[in-house]
Design a protein around this nucleic acid. Structure first.
Length: 405
DNA sequence: TCTGGGGTCCTAGGACCC
DNA sequence: TCTGGGGTCCTAGGACCC
């Protein structure tokens, strides 16, 4: 959407313009060490270096993600949508040049969506992820890397030069523990004794090693998994101290979570809410929270909000400089799976109609068109989003229009 | 002196992912 | 002044049952 920025160093910030959470390669080249750093700490220097910053824009990302996934779909009969920007495709049995196929996927996605991507090919999901990492980091690969057509010693060379942390499923804790056992690179990990690994590290890492050896343990998952919990939470743009403001914020999150619950056709059996100051504060950390079970599963915004506000009133403590609050819906069950309560007072049928009307209006005219009054009007606590790009693909008013002479 | 065997469910905590 | 949000899976230990 902004071809004028091609080649410029760009960073994307987390919610509330808090931390640097993504960088273009141009930005990485000059300030790689800034990744995950608070923006207020690095902003001045980054600006001097010509870095352009954007607030995160999830509406736009979700829309582009859908286009990306739809484009990929035609390249394989089996697709797993793994995350907002990653997908596994099953190429089993395709008697074609896989590298050429990967190049075609890459150029089609670029042409249809404008998104530059990389393709990694391997005999297991873990190997495919590693191949993708290699394609991304080595320009000679032209964005496509196929481990299955590579000579054994070449693959071993690559693995010997990669730290274990590059393997899917190995985070900072496991990396440190593996290093202390003398396992530093991927090749060494691949050759580790699986029985010893299982005893010391557990079944998860054992599976990872088998996957590195080409033994498939992680199935392609095409199902749209049902959520087990739904959460809505945010840091405040400015600190909050009054109960009134917290009531507004908790109402907002309860309504937001409930709407997402309905979208997935689910019902909640319990509501958890929390409000806290910042662990970075000099004042004592106060993580206030609480949970309440519901008499019968519901997805009604009114009932869920009422429950969340009850929790809030139990835990609210005057004098705390609240920095963040949120609501989590738990013990979710699908439609038809609800058990009614002993006294038969389950959700009134009218509430279904009310929720349907609410969702319809908010979908048609935009988020927050109709809402509970306790959500407030001014929202002094709303998050900072100073550098948000337009919602190019999701709002009639923000569609980019080429100027014609 | 010596105290069984075979299970399930729940929770907290630790690890990971994007 | 300012430090993100939303998830999943596994294990150990404690409690219970017959």
């Amino acid at each position: 959407m902004r071809p004028d920025l091609i080649g410029k160093p760009i960073v994307v910030l987390s919610n509330n313009d808090g931390c640097v959470i993504a960088q273009t390669k141009e930005a990485k080249a000059i300030l790689e060490l800034y990744m995950c750093k608070p923006w207020f700490e690095v902003e001045e220097e980054a600006r001097k270096l010509g870095v352009v910053a954007f607030s995160s824009n999830y509406e736009l990302y979700a829309n582009m993600s859908n286009r990306f996934m739809a484009t990929l779909k035609q390249f394989s009969p089996r697709q797993e949508v793994y995350s907002i920007d990653e997908s596994f495709l099953d190429l089993t049995g395709m008697k074609i040049d896989l590298v050429a196929h990967g190049q075609e996927i890459k150029s089609t996605v670029l042409q249809w969506t404008g998104l530059p991507i990389c393709v990694g090919i391997g005999s297991t999901k873990t190997l495919a992820k590693l191949a993708n990492h290699h394609a991304k980091k080595n320009t000679y690969a032209n964005g496509v890397c196929d481990f299955t057509s590579m000579a054994h010693h070449d693959l071993n060379d690559i693995m010997a030069n990669l730290p274990v942390s590059k393997v899917w499923g190995i985070g900072s804790r496991l990396e440190a523990k593996l290093n202390s056992h003398g396992v530093h690179n991927v090749l060494r990990l691949k050759r580790a004794d699986t029985k010893r690994i299982r005893d010391e590290f557990g079944v998860v890492l054992e599976r990872t090693i088998k996957e590195l050896n080409g033994e498939s343990w992680l199935e392609l998952d095409e199902s749209l998994a049902e959520a087990k919990q739904v959460m809505s939470s945010r840091s405040f743009g400015a600190r909050v101290t009054t109960l009134q403001e917290l009531v507004e914020a908790i109402t907002f999150h309860a309504a937001n979570a409930a709407q997402r619950l309905r979208k997935q056709g689910l019902y909640a059996n319990a509501v958890y809410a929390f409000a806290q100051n910042s662990p970075f504060d000099k004042a004592k950390f106060y993580p206030g929270d609480g949970m309440i079970g519901l008499p019968a599963p519901t997805n009604c915004t009114l009932q869920i909000t009422k429950a969340a506000l009850w929790v809030l009133k139990q835990m609210y403590k005057p004098g705390v400089y609240y920095q963040k609050a949120g609501v989590m819906l738990m013990e979710l069950v699908p439609e038809g799976g609800q058990q009614t309560d002993l006294f038969g007072t389950a959700a009134a049928p009218k509430s279904d109609e009310l929720m349907a009307v609410m969702d319809k209006l908010n979908n048609k005219y935009g988020r927050g068109t109709i809402k509970l009054a306790s959500e407030g009007i001014n929202k002094s606590w709303a998050m900072r989003r100073e550098y948000k790009s337009p919602n190019y693909t999701g709002s009639w008013n923000e569609i980019p229009i080429a100027k014609c002479q």
